[in-house]
Design a protein around this nucleic acid. Structure first.
Lengths: 158, 158
DNA sequence: TTAAAATAGTTAGCATGCTAAGTAAATGGA
DNA sequence: TCCATTTACTTAGCATGCTAACTATTTTAA
């Protein structure tokens, strides 16, 4: 027994591959469930984050919340605007900024979306205890910090 | 205290967003570290998996190991072949299959790659105990199963 | 034995992340 | 005050995942 490798070593080369795979699968599950609403992953994710940030935030704030870069968000915002789910209004104070709001229809769609996502989430978390989920969440945060430091190490510092 | 929500609830809407983010960051960290070798993420990942499968496997087997679809792999294989890191040889038994082998240079590159990845991995896992990593690995497997079932639920079964 | 179904691989084109480089507005220091 | 820097956002184009649809081969079954 003492020579058995730790379980996670057997799973994947860096755990990263598994995370990518689980990420894609969870994403696909939700996207499939919300398919009737005509939303892709990037769109429903942005909607959920906009809801949690409260309306009226800037694109920069939303991008930070999503953990993606601005250009990635620009495309999604444009689509949501074309679908008339959200509206962009120039900030009166700072003419560079655009603030984001749900339209009337957008709010209705959001309601439906929330219900569906809550349901899917239950399925995704099935058979996982709160302790397990919390351990995973803490681990993810730690790995995120490690990775960022690692990136700094290999790029900036030479 | 009793009304405090579980930690993972505060982290992200579905944990999926975090996984995607950590996945991208880990991937970037390794890719940056192996940059001198001229390899992108999909290429070094494929090399590592090919090594673990032993040479001579088919593209289908490698795709399964990587958890990606065939067309995604085709592109990567083509690049690795152009870089003369791997070679494809038609199977004598089954003319549809192509078996994958490292070239001489490919093997040398692999050696260097392994050393670098082992190093990066240490950084990425810093401050995480074996127990934590194992819990995460088990959780990921469970979530992967849940997601697959969920996808079946929303697509096939109606 | 031969036509239908399954399997290995490819090509074409979409979704979503990224970086690099550009525009317009705000800010800060000479 | 005014030019240089910074900031918010956009555009262009790449990397890597995907599905759909095609070819060629193998297997299955009538």
């Amino acid at each position: 027994m003492s020579s058995t490798p730790p379980f996670h070593e057997t799973l994947d080369l860096t755990l990263c591959g598994s995370m990518g795979r689980v990420h894609r699968l969870c994403r696909d599950a939700v996207t499939l469930a919300v398919e009737p609403l005509g939303l892709t992953q990037s769109r429903w994710t942005a909607m959920m984050h906009l809801f949690h940030l409260n309306q009226g935030c800037t694109q920069q704030e939303l991008a930070n919340s999503l953990g993606i870069e601005m250009p990635s968000l620009t495309r999604t915002i444009k689509q949501l605007e074309q679908q008339e789910i959200i509206a962009r209004k120039a900030d009166a104070e700072d003419k560079r900024s655009k603030r984001l709001y749900f339209t009337e229809q957008g709010l209705q769609l959001l309601d439906t979306l929330q219900v569906i996502i809550a349901d899917v989430k239950q399925h995704l978390y099935a058979d996982l205890t709160t302790e397990q989920l919390d351990t995973m969440a803490h681990g993810l945060i730690q790995m995120e910090q490690n990775a960022r430091q690692c990136i700094r190490h290999y790029s900036g510092d030479k």
